[in-house]
Computed example of a mutant assay.
Amino acid sequence: MDQKDKFELNKRILDSVHRYKHKRRIQKYSVAASLTLLVAIGSSIWFFQNDTINSLPSIRQHATSAKLGTGAESEVKLVLGNDQEVQINSDSAEISYSNTGETVSINNERSLQQSSKKTVEPVYNSIVVPYGKRSKISLSDGSKVWLNSGTKLTYPIAFQNGRREVYLVGEAIFEVSHNEQSPFYVVTEDYHVKVLGTVFNVSSYPDDDYTNTALESGSVEIYFPSNPDLKNGAIRITPGTLATFDKKNNDIKTKEVDVATYMSWKEGVFIFQNDELSSILKKVARHYKVQISIENEHLAKQTFSGTLDISKSLDKIFKIIQETTDFEYNSTDNQIKIYQTD
């Protein structure tokens, strides 16, 4: 394929991206009582009350002290309040809690019982989604969470004292039930997101150099305890904004984006627009539970635009990317090496 053919092919791929996004807008569900967000950042600053910030570390302490395993595990794992571990053999597990949190339904096939006796501290559950798997949870307040590969979420089985808090490592899309009297907080290693009712995707993987949030509608507040310039303060983001927190430089940047690009994985599609190959293959590696290395730095920085249907085999994914990017690869067990063709 010569350069002219590749240019025409890339143009057709970009057109397909726009068509997908247009279809996504048409199919977008009603958000009368909810909004849509991905973890990012916005434009104006305001301040939380001190008791709001001071109460957040409890769930962080529980989540970081619990032995939840890593993305290297083979099955989705649900850890109950008594430390009982439940293995879920499913590529896309679905878990649902009753409004008391005492009954847990798994894939509509079996149910578990646990005590929600009110104590000073809530009863927490955690879910660990390994690489190569995804999951969906319906929390006791009716909020829904879609968890991407390599993600851990810790949450109370029933929210208490007018506070709703969860702790996230990895990436998730939240559809939060609206409740003005009980704000919902997503706590990550780098910042806390406060919402009243919204749908949002938070991306906060430990091996990434950044944490992202993207907002589709409504507004959210994000507090950055590690940034001295925002001490005791928060940032509010506006719809269509992607906020990126640079972990190395402790820097925050925002830009306008099409949020569908950051939400599409829930529907089994990755969308890329001029994304570097290294970034693309990191997401691919998480989904397919493999390790991918790129031998050439110039190749790693080449960009790709298009849509990837991640229900297809890994070989087909590589062939799609190869249509506009010159590289070859070899695979040994779960180790894949990418190298540039001569």
Rank of each mutant, 00 (worst) to 15 (best):
L35R: 03
V104H: 03
V257H: 02
E276F: 08
P57L: 06
E216C: 07
V199P: 02
S140W: 05
S105L: 13
S92A: 11
G233E: 13
G132H: 10
D5R: 04
Q61Y: 10
L78D: 03
K133G: 07
R236M: 12
S138G: 09
L308H: 02
D333T: 06
T198G: 02
A33C: 07
R60T: 12
K133I: 07
T188Q: 03
A32D: 12
P228C: 10
S226P: 03
Y20L: 06
N334A: 11
S92V: 08
A93K: 02
P156I: 08
D333C: 01
H192L: 00
H298C: 04
S135T: 06
I13S: 10
L277Y: 00
L230V: 03
N227I: 04
N212R: 00
G42A: 01
S34P: 04
S140H: 05
L277Q: 01
Q160R: 14
S126V: 09
G197R: 08
Y205M: 06
L112G: 04
S140M: 07
D229N: 14
F304T: 01
N274V: 02
T303S: 12
L168T: 14
I173K: 15
T36N: 11
K316Q: 13
V176Q: 04
N232K: 14
R286Y: 12
H298V: 11
A260V: 04
S182V: 06
R164M: 14
T341M: 13
E295H: 11
D190T: 01
E175Q: 14
P206V: 05
I280L: 11
R110Y: 11
L37N: 01
I41K: 03
K194E: 10
A63T: 06
I235F: 04
K6V: 04
D5I: 03
I237M: 04
Y20I: 02
L277K: 01
F304N: 00
T64G: 05
V104W: 03
E109H: 12
F47Q: 08
K152N: 15
S264R: 02
S98Y: 06
F318W: 07
A72E: 14
